[in-house]
Design a protein around this nucleic acid. Structure first.
Lengths: 197, 197
DNA sequence: CCAACATGTCACCACACGGTGACTTATAGG
DNA sequence: CCTATAAGTCACCGTGTGGTGACATGTTGG
């Protein structure tokens, strides 16, 4: 209850994460966030000039997205020595694991799929930039960009992101059990299958 | 203004489709539907016992999902003569085209990704059954089910469905332009690439 | 010490939503 | 023709939302 602006701001930012994890993005609202933070909602307007900016502050603070290093692993050179298809396989599978450990990020991805606001646009831009960075790191010489392989990688990333989003509400998709590790192993296997062939 | 229950019911059902196309599933509500239908909202309760049942009536009426024949084409035997990978390619690409022509279906898919209600569950079940039917038709002898290929097909279907959903709100994904025919041709090419290899 | 300012509290507004009861009016069956 | 019933209209309620103005209280610099 200390009269401390910094503290109140942090409470609000953390409350966004709590609500995101507990209720999903649908539960995000001025009243709900303020309630979860144990703080008056008027402070959202005073300190952040409204909910969008608070969300932006949350987005900038949390580690929404894996770093480029996290998906490339410690030994980048080893990845670069692989044939192009297996480089892609490595990155796609690593991204899949990274996202499975970030429920709030999946929540935001779901949000991006259905809404278009300041936060989702910002985060989408960050991710697009991230994608370009990864490609640049994995394929250093611009001439060898294997367009088909990259497009396929995109499609597979889109695919498992969608499955992660759906898993929150639906138990299965097309016969694949989204709630069991076996189901996700099938998905990984499909990615390997596509990249090996 | 004729005093005709049948007519009013049809107006309401059609209004659901209009709102879906114009405002998306977020605009679906008792007030909005009644307003679009030019009908009092109390009739939604009287005739359909609430919005969920009205949505169900809409879902049963419209051709949300392509028929099995639409994606298999007129000559099923010709498809069956193809090698398994190309059978999958044919079906996946046909489904992609079929869905691109059904904006309301894409809207519902987006809804399914973020909500869990009577309508989305019903439609999800219909689609799961549809998927099983297609597999049974394309791979008549149960022994030869190529599990990896099917899982990959699932992943690709999930992928382009996600891209269709995102296209409504985002102009691009991972460097692929979702608003141009060239971008979608890249996606088709990726599907062919995966199935040919 | 005291005044000025920042921090926090509270009550309130307008609005849109889902939902319902009471009413009027047209239509059809005896 | 007349009455019962279905079809349609309207006003209203409670609730939750985003948003704001007015107030009280703690902290800090002159």
């Amino acid at each position: 209850m200390g009269r401390d602006r910094e503290y109140s701001e942090q409470r609000l930012i953390q409350a966004v994460g709590q609500i995101l994890a507990r209720d999903g993005f649908g539960g995000l609202g001025v009243n709900a966030v303020a309630r979860a933070a144990g703080v008056d909602k008027v402070l959202i307007y005073r300190y952040f000039d409204g909910l969008p900016n608070l969300l932006r502050a949350y987005g900038e603070g949390a580690d929404f997205w894996p770093t480029v290093d996290e998906v490339l692993g410690s030994d980048i050179d080893a990845v670069r020595r692989l044939p192009p298809e297996q480089r892609v396989e490595h990155v796609v599978l690593a991204l899949l694991e990274a996202l499975r450990n970030r429920p709030q990020t999946i929540e935001i991805l779901a949000w991006e799929a259905v809404a278009d606001n300041a936060l989702t646009r910002t985060l989408a831009n960050i991710r697009e930039q991230w994608g370009r960075d990864v490609i640049a790191r994995v394929f250093p010489d611009a001439r060898e960009h294997p367009d088909d392989v990259l497009a396929l990688a995109n499609l597979m990333v889109a695919g498992f992101q969608y499955l992660m989003i759906r898993a929150r509400k639906s138990p299965a998709f097309g016969g694949v059990d989204l709630r069991s590790e076996a189901g996700w192993e099938r998905i990984r296997q499909a990615i390997r299958f596509a990249c090996r062939a």
